[in-house]
């Protein structure tokens, strides 16, 4: 019996949970892409917002002729529409920053491992320095230096996140450089770039790739925190995270819907990204494929 339970828990494909999260993630992406077409309201357009309907509870019929299914926020914006539009910004910012950070971090980490000596010292001390400070602090310093704007946020998130990838991938790459297929590649006198990108990198990134979905999740949270502090995306174009943050002050007065529903949307997004990410990692690793 115990063995049976352990086996079920250990089983790598998540079965229905995986299928569900794939469907959910696909739905999120589709909703984000289709937001302008399907959202009942454009929350960026002041003409479509009725300030006197601020903080309406879910189910209220609005002046725009549609029902506020999930209520409105403190400025009178429809929560459903805010979620749909916020999803676009959150996904765009976090996916872009996590991917670019991964590219930079992986290359830096693998190079540190391959070249060793001063290259390793230079890159890894910078990584140590960054990782010894809270990520939010790095992002704050970056955003304060760079100024506001979505592009700056992405840049700040890249600066804040690349070090994690570099640290993870360097350790793996270091053990890979010790394997004899790397020696064989050197004996062929392959160009250094070919050794790094064709032999070392593909064998080192498996566990760093799993970081990407998690880091996308982090990026969403980080961006929300920055927005909460007023340093994130502009208030007139709220992301999913800043919509949660906007409702925070209303929680104590019982207007739970402003934060709760965007929060649930955020939770579903991160959970489905993580599950699908785990599956992607398994598929990327040829050693886990059966013959």
């Amino acid at each position: 019996m115990k063995a049976e339970i352990i086996r079920v828990l250990r089983r790598p494909p998540f079965g229905q949970a995986l299928t569900l999260s794939k469907v959910v993630l696909a739905a999120y992406v589709l909703l984000a892409l289709a937001a302008p077409a399907i959202a009942p309201q454009n929350p960026y357009d002041p003409l479509q917002i009725y300030g006197w309907e601020a903080s309406s509870p879910p189910g209220t019929v609005g002046s725009g002729g549609f029902i506020y299914l999930l209520g409105t926020d403190g400025l009178g914006r429809d929560i459903v529409s805010s979620i749909l539009y916020g999803l676009r910004i959150s996904l765009f910012v976090s996916i872009t920053s996590a991917t670019v950070a991964a590219l930079i971090g992986l290359t830096a980490g693998v190079s540190a491992a391959y070249f060793g000596k001063w290259v390793d010292v230079a890159i890894m001390r910078l990584v140590d320095l960054q990782l010894s400070l809270p990520t939010i602090l790095i992002a704050l310093i970056a955003i304060v230096t760079l100024g506001p704007g979505i592009d700056r946020i992405i840049l700040a998130l890249i600066i804040a996140q690349w070090a994690t990838y570099a640290r993870v991938v360097r350790g793996i790459a270091l053990s890979e450089t010790g394997k004899s297929y790397m020696d064989a590649a050197k004996l062929m006198r392959l160009p250094t770039s070919r050794i790094i990108f064709r032999h070392l990198l593909p064998n080192s990134i498996a566990s760093a790739v799993t970081l990407i979905p998690i880091e996308i999740g982090h990026a969403v949270a980080l961006e929300a925190t920055l927005s909460f502090l007023g340093l994130g995306v502009p208030m007139d174009k709220p992301s999913l995270g800043s919509t949660v943050a906007n409702g925070f002050q209303y929680l104590l007065t019982g207007q739970y819907w402003i934060s709760l529903f965007p929060g649930l949307a955020l939770f579903g997004l991160i959970a489905s990204i993580n599950l699908v990410g785990e599956d992607v990692r398994r598929r990327l690793d040829p050693r886990s494929r059966s013959i």
Binding site: P202, N203, P286
Partner: peptide, 29 residues
């Protein structure tokens, strides 16, 4: 000096790049 001598290594499990096919490995050589 590197490249003048080829080697055959002890553990075949780690002497081939796990992500390239046999053909790719040999063509590279």
């Amino acid at each position: 000096l590197l490249g003048r001598v080829q080697m055959i290594f002890q553990d075949p499990a780690v002497s081939l790049n796990p992500r390239t096919t046999v053909g790719e490995t040999l063509r590279e050589s």
